[in-house]
Design a protein around this nucleic acid. Structure first.
Lengths: 342, 342
DNA sequence: GTTAGCACTTGGATGTTCCGAGTGCTAATG
DNA sequence: CATTAGCACTCGGAACATCCAAGTGCTAAC
């Protein structure tokens, strides 16, 4: 176990390294006001800390830098509550005071503002649509050959998709189908739409319209061909600002992952509520082995859980990042709750 | 004026430099099969080309690289028609065969595929909405306090925005307003909506609903608070792959511009149809002084002009880029035309 | 247990040398 | 008289040496 002094030294080193990105030597630690030990004493403790795996050297006579284990200890045991500046709180509050609101916009905006506030890359993953229910279905004919299907959910989410209408199908057929679908399906959770249609609607359709099969196919394709996870990323270029990515290769591989929604989304899926931190090699993806990902969950209504995350170098301002995510996710949950569930 | 031989040498140097990114020396040119002059002769011509401003040296005893003027001459007089590979044509055609179509998706997809095909950054700017007309307006109430306004245009574009509904306003009021708006406004070009409302609709509204002013304000805000230019960017990280951006500062400043829609959109606005090339300092923006931007216009229906563009280093594969943009923009225009204008 | 002292290590900055690839110029050449 | 061979010259980059600051580990003293 670590002695108090060792823990203190570890903390100073990490705090300092987070700020400067330079290896820290014993002399510099000794100079700190709240440190009253000699460099030699500190050197001994540093040697112990290194042996225990919390610190590493970049070369045999360099100062120490934190290892991933060091960061892990730091976030688990030393994260002092960080108080956000009044300006920062101001920005956050003003975000959620806005009269107009829409889930997509909230997520997009959150990503944007948080990346400005932190200088890290921000990712926002929309909630899984377990509970979201169909509010309304609409078909708007555009011309003889095409129409747009619009689906609105009770969370205010709008999906739309245009599709080609073959000559054999009349717009009145489509209309009938839509009417029937609306009658039967409004209020049904999105994820059950599919099987609900199979069991309840198909027969009915058959009675009303001769061309029902084709019309139905069309609408079905238009609405369910979608992939519905939504990922918003902002501040990617902040990555380039970090000195650890002066090695352009690291930046490249990280960018490649970030641009790939399929790869990123699973990393953000939360298995439990709250804040979670993945440091360096704790991230499954190799390109992220020099990065830290901090995720926080937010909720929409009762059960729907989305994730908001910050991605930065392992040398991250953990305290600030965690506080910001914490505050933000609370505000976001609250705000979304207020609007979408009476 | 350039002699034939000088033009040939210029072409060889540019072709070679585009491929290797290395300065070209006289000996290497002389080694080419189709070159039958001695290095000394070539050196003389190179000295002339340098004096005339088509080539520059990186230092006094280096080989030559093309200047921006050199590239300009190259694209104006030497661009040999580049035939795309059958695979490339395949990809392009398959893109526009797809049954489902939607303008947003087409643009998004185009950006994506072109950046894959070229390894440059692709930008697609949606058309100005001069002619687009309102097809349908819709309000979907979500709960007591909020509703979503959906606007569909005759090009299949869907805008939506949710807004808060104050207690003083009834949903039936909103409904009335929407009905009136639809009656009066369907078929009106989007850009005239605003003044059409002023002149034709306000009085009418007054008669029907007592609360009209507030309802109207709400809807107005919801629909016209939007900014409607749409810019899709794909393959930003391709920038990092180019050796000219090994200098991370250049990459940073370019990224900053690219992430700023307000700055990029004007650069893409086309004053005339066709393909346009801006090399290095021909670009107004300083961050783009080491890049070339090639833009091509596409049309939707009769008059609406959008832009599709490739951004790369000045050392760009001009022939390929131009051919691709040319082919793509034609296909895109054709495809959009077919779908949205009977 | 803590600290002062000291020999030792290392990366990085600076300077020197050397070489290859290139140039410009001059004189010879067909 | 346009082309070419020859040659002296230039420059950047790689390789190597030197030096210094910042740091370490260890030992002996406090």
């Amino acid at each position: 176990m670590l002695t108090d002094r060792q823990a203190l030294i570890l903390q100073v080193i990490i705090d300092e390294f987070i700020e400067t990105a330079q290896p820290i030597g014993s002399r510099n630690i000794a100079k700190k006001d709240h440190i009253s030990y000699s460099p030699a004493t500190i050197r001994n403790d540093m040697a112990d800390l290194e042996e225990a795996g919390y610190l590493v050297k970049t070369h045999s006579s360099s100062g120490r830098i934190p290892s991933e284990k060091g960061y892990r200890f730091y976030v688990d045991h030393m994260l002092s509550p960080f108080s956000l500046s009044t300006e920062e709180m101001q920005v956050i509050k003003s975000q959620f005071n806005d009269r107009m609101i829409e889930m997509e916009k909230v997520m997009q905006n959150s990503a944007h503002i948080l990346s400005e506030l932190t200088q890290y890359t921000t990712l926002v993953l929309g909630p899984e649509v377990y509970e979201t229910k169909l509010k309304q279905l609409q078909i708007v004919p555009i011309n003889k050959q095409s129409a747009i299907a619009i689906l609105v959910t009770d969370t205010g989410h709008v999906e739309h998709r245009s599709f080609a209408v073959p000559h054999t199908i009349d717009h009145s057929d489509l209309e009938k189908v839509v009417n029937i679908l609306n009658q039967k399906l409004v209020g049904v959770p999105i994820i059950y739409l599919d099987r609900m249609i199979e069991s309840e609607v198909l027969d009915l359709l058959n009675q009303y319209t001769s061309n029902y099969q084709k019309s139905y196919d069309l609408i079905h394709n238009a609405l369910f061909g979608h992939q519905t996870t939504s990922l918003y990323v902002s501040g990617k270029s902040n990555i380039l600002m970090q000195p650890e990515f002066n090695d352009i290769e690291k930046a490249r591989s990280l960018f490649n992952v970030l641009e790939n929604e399929e790869k990123m989304a699973p990393m953000l899926k939360a298995d439990e509520e709250g804040i979670h931190i993945s440091i360096g090699h704790e991230n499954a993806m190799e390109a992220m082995n020099h990065s830290t990902l901090i995720t926080a969950t937010y909720t929409v209504g009762n059960e729907q859980i989305g994730t908001i995350a910050l991605l930065g170098p392992t040398r991250m301002e953990y305290a600030k990042a965690v506080s910001l995510l914490d505050v933000w996710s609370r505000h976001m949950s609250q705000s979304l709750h207020k609007w979408f569930k009476d």
